[in-house]
Nucleic acid binder design. Structure first.
Lengths: 187, 187
DNA sequence: TGACCCATGTAAGGGGTTACATGATTTG
DNA sequence: CAAATCATGTAACCCCTTACATGGGTCA
């Protein structure tokens, strides 16, 4: 519902091409907003047609031509309007939890493997977020001040991943407790 | 992507009507899977056409007639197949974080109000999850054993909400730090 | 030489929300 | 007496994913 506005925000701080934005989604906002390149290109088209964006074609020699998008005054106004409007809390749809919920119908081994896969992903995400945080703390005070709000979203990512991994440990303990039956080597 | 399978799981443990399932989503799996009634009815239709569900019409006197759905053997097989297949990690699209990210373009007051709204929702969710957990701990051991896996998903909800609220406190501190400029009452 | 980066799109289909539609019964 | 509960659906629309399509430049 707010890919539109995520794009407006990114372009407000710096104009860029669709490819540009796609990368910024992947690297920057990736831990709280995801978008495929197809979706970004389509949305840019729509936002231009709505009059919120303008672009100039930019021919390049060694690289493919690109379109450089920037906010129009109408786009800026729309962004401010949206910021004043309440956003509705996120609803969560988490397939892993659906699977766990039904865990009694499959093997503990299967669940453990699944958890291992997800743990690896979450650990990697956490590592990269922590490294971004270290960079942030290394910045001079004025730059930190300017990045104050994005930093808060980074904190959400970090606390969220840490909490997820803490939960994963609980799950692993619980899955171990049930295993002795299937691997009765101990006694 | 797995509303289908969430429905199969719910019907596997107990047959029921669309309305039934809708309520179970709201009360039971609500903290990790959400669905509107329209979506549930549509999905039941599709699952029946796919041969994974069967239903018998049930006429009632004082209440509207309903359709009682249950798993077919094919539906059961599909559920097992799905449980053996890896699920891909959740991608997060969180509009509140988009708004915070752009927070520098709006007033701290606006952000604080927004946060208050969300905090109220998350506190309420946490309270209800904790109350479900208390009920769980009050159950006899065999029933707890049977609900082992659903309990793990409950724990995810609890840890997740606690972590969210912890983050919200960080945000409130950060937003207060910036306020003295706009409310210079202190000195 | 194969993989990855740059750069942009179309098309089909699946998933989800919002609006519309109906109507009796129970509870506060 | 109003609101919530029981009970089921259709239609329009938006959002998102997956597959397809193209093609040069750079790096290991």
């Amino acid at each position: 519902m707010s890919l539109k506005h995520a794009i407006l925000i990114l372009l407000e701080s710096e104009p860029g091409s669709g490819y540009d934005l796609f990368k910024r989604f992947k690297d920057g906002l990736g831990y709280f907003w995801n978008a495929k390149h197809q979706q970004v290109y389509l949305e840019l088209k729509k936002l231009s047609e709505a009059g919120w964006l303008a672009f100039e074609a930019q021919t390049q020699d060694t690289r493919p031509d690109k379109k450089n998008y920037r906010l129009t005054p109408a786009g800026h106004a729309e962004l401010l309007r949206w910021l004043g409007e309440p956003v509705q809390p996120n609803t969560i749809n988490d397939a892993l939890l659906v699977k766990l919920y039904a865990g009694a119908h499959t093997s503990p081994d299967n669940l453990r493997e699944e958890m291992q896969r997800h743990i690896a992903v979450h650990r990697k995400t956490l590592d990269s977020l922590l490294s971004i945080e270290r960079d942030y703390h290394g910045l001079p005070a004025e730059q930190r001040q300017a990045l104050r709000m994005p930093y808060l979203t980074l904190r959400r990512g970090i606390l969220g991943e840490q909490s997820w991994l803490q939960w994963a440990e609980e799950v692993e303990h619980a899955l171990q407790d049930t295993t002795p039956a299937s691997t009765p080597a101990g006694k």
